[in-house]
Simulated scan of single mutants.
Amino acid sequence: MASRHRILVIDDDPHIGALLQDYLGRYDFQVTHVARGHEGVECLQKELMHLVVLDIRLPDEDGFALLKSIRQRWDIPVIMLTGLQEETDRVVGLELGADDYLTKPFSPRELLARIRAVLRRSGKPVRSRGRIYHFESHRLDVDKRTVTLADGKTLKLTASEFRLLKIFLDSPGRLFDRETLLELCHPYGEEVYDRSIDVQILRLRRKLEQDPAHPQLIVTERGAGYRFAADVEKVEASHPQ
């Protein structure tokens, strides 16, 4: 089984760090987020990383100097984050050895595509994992996006239902508020109304729960949000893309 690719994100914005940990984690990347340049260097000294996502505009350190130091000390790809209008930053960063760049604000989906492309170019092939989730007597096949129930019946999930269920299965027991679920399910800036999560959860309950009126899997914490209450077992089988 191939090890997960480890991504180091150096960015002082905690929102970006949390979003990338959740989003990239759903695609089997292990993300470490630090807010300061020296913390990034310490992390690289202690742990094996496969790629760095670096915000050039760090509040405590010259991002270009940090980029140059990383390229001199480690053979590791770097994707830099820059401001929308800062063309000079992009040119200088590429000249200093950055492998790619992305302007803020950015789509997590585009960053994922760039990470995969950079890793392929660097000779570190990205591997996909055929993951199976077992919960209660059900089975979710990630590749097929199907749920097999205890009675053997197979259900097809819509794209939104699949994303939502996988978020819960990746973090069983975690309490999610509605705003967080909306952001994780729709990270590309789609306009959705704030009750759409409630509708999707209702649909999932109708498909998965023995008694949707009294759910035991996706439970409501009144005034706080939702959490997945069942135990989850993950089984992975890696294969090259």
Rank of each mutant, 00 (worst) to 15 (best):
V147M: 04
E110A: 06
R73A: 12
T158Y: 01
S171T: 11
S107E: 04
L102T: 11
P105C: 09
K68R: 12
R90V: 15
K144W: 07
L184T: 05
A65W: 01
L157A: 03
M80C: 07
V52F: 05
T82M: 01
S137F: 14
V78I: 05
K153W: 03
H138C: 15
E61R: 06
F168Q: 08
D100W: 06
I70H: 04
E183P: 00
L149H: 01
R129G: 06
D60M: 09
A113E: 14
R73L: 10
H138V: 02
L94Y: 03
R127C: 14
L58D: 03
R145S: 12
H186M: 10
F176S: 06
I56G: 01
R57D: 04
L155P: 02
V52P: 04
D177N: 15
W74F: 14
L164T: 06
R57S: 08
F106T: 08
L119Q: 15
L157G: 02
F106S: 07
P108L: 09
D62A: 02
P172C: 10
V92C: 02
T154A: 10
G130F: 13
S128L: 13
L184M: 11
E136H: 13
L184G: 05
R127D: 12
D151W: 08
E190M: 13
D55Q: 05
D170C: 12
L67R: 02
L169K: 05
S122I: 04
D100P: 06
T146F: 01
L66Y: 00
E87V: 15
R174L: 14
L67I: 08
R116V: 13
H134E: 11
T180S: 11
D55S: 10
L157W: 01
V147D: 00
T154Q: 13
S128P: 00
E86T: 13
L96Y: 13
E95P: 01
I167Y: 00
G152P: 05
F106G: 08
E183K: 13
P172I: 11
D151H: 08
I70M: 11
D170Y: 12
T154E: 15
S107M: 04
T158W: 01
A117Y: 12
F168H: 07
I132A: 10
P105T: 06
R129V: 15
P172F: 10
F168N: 07
L96R: 05
R121H: 14
I56N: 01
R174F: 13
I132P: 04
S128I: 12
T82C: 03
V78M: 00
E86Q: 15
V52E: 00
L102F: 09
L157Y: 02
D60S: 11
R120M: 11
A150L: 03
G152S: 06
G97H: 05
D151S: 10
L81A: 06
A65I: 02
G173S: 06
S160T: 13
E61L: 07
E86C: 09
L81S: 03
A113K: 14
